[in-house]
């Protein structure tokens, strides 16, 4: 069977596809996250490590590491869709990039937040200007900058292109974060953050961590596709297919105001073409 992938490169065609995918990814994400929580809290040892073990607080690992991985992966996705959009000038690619950004920012913030609450009992401080912590903070600012730059430019096409360029330039942070734990000389630079120890970690801990990562990943799909649908609706609100869809669904109870009241209402709240003002 041959699938014409370009058929789905148009927002019109992808809108219903995304709508079908959101609940699938959402339910699967919820199931995986619940399983990972159960496994992490009840099937794992109470100590992590050998001679100087970390106590129960190490369980933050089950959200800290997955959130940190997602923060970097989602930035890669964001930059990749930005690049595809700049090269091929496809509208849906830019919309994808915009749909991913807030979810990526959330996971970056969570990596920092959970890291702070892990650092306090293990290092004795919530925050340190350690290379990895600092570079992750810059990644967070990059996500914020991407969204702020996009919303600061009124014309969607120009906003797409400017923000995409910023996203691609910001890609430089990913290898910096990745290698930030390799401090060449401990006397010159202090790297508090420990190295990745995925290979020698206890298998139950690893199971919970990896399942949570998969859960976060599927959650990101669900959230990004839901946001993508909102963005498509906002940008295509004047197109025939959105009008048709709204007209067909317009008989619903929530959208049938008394006659006459609707006109004034509409002029007040959305009488002028407002493609902004609703945060998605």
């Amino acid at each position: 069977m041959k699938i014409n992938w370009f058929k789905y490169a148009s927002p019109t065609a992808f809108y219903p596809v995304a709508g079908r995918l959101v609940p699938v990814f959402g339910v699967a994400a919820l199931a995986l996250m619940l399983f990972a929580l159960y496994w992490g809290f009840f099937e794992t040892p109470e100590r992590l490590g050998g001679t100087n073990p970390q106590k129960e607080y190490y369980r933050i690992i089950f959200i800290h590491v997955p959130a940190a991985w997602m923060s970097m992966w989602l930035y890669l996705v964001l930059a990749a869709w930005s690049a595809v959009g700049l090269v091929f000038n496809t509208r849906l690619s830019f919309m994808m990039a915009n749909a991913v950004a807030p979810t990526g920012a959330i996971f970056t913030f969570l990596a920092l937040w959970t890291g702070a609450f892990w650092g306090r009992p293990s290092w004795g401080t919530y925050w340190d200007w350690d290379p990895r912590l600092t570079s992750e903070l810059i990644l967070f600012f990059l996500y914020i900058g991407f969204m702020a730059l996009h919303s600061a430019i009124d014309d969607n096409r120009r906003a797409d292109q400017a923000a995409a360029l910023l996203a691609i330039v910001g890609l430089v942070m990913l290898p910096i974060i990745y290698w930030s734990i390799n401090c060449p000389d401990p006397n010159n630079c202090a790297a508090l953050h420990q190295r990745s120890s995925v290979t020698d970690i206890e298998s139950n801990i690893l199971t919970a961590m990896l399942v949570m990562t998969l859960g976060f990943w599927l959650y990101s799909f669900a959230a990004a596709f839901a946001r993508l649908r909102n963005i498509i609706l906002l940008r295509e609100q004047d197109s025939a297919w959105v009008r048709k869809m709204v007209d067909e669904a317009g008989a619903g109870p929530s959208s049938s105001p008394p006659p006459g009241a609707g006109a004034a209402d509409g002029l007040d709240a959305g009488g002028h073409r407002a493609s902004r003002g609703v945060s998605v």
Partner: peptide, 9 residues
């Protein structure tokens, strides 16, 4: 968004 699009329609 749907409410606003519906109002405009």
């Amino acid at each position: 968004i749907l409410q606003r699009v519906g109002r405009l329609a």
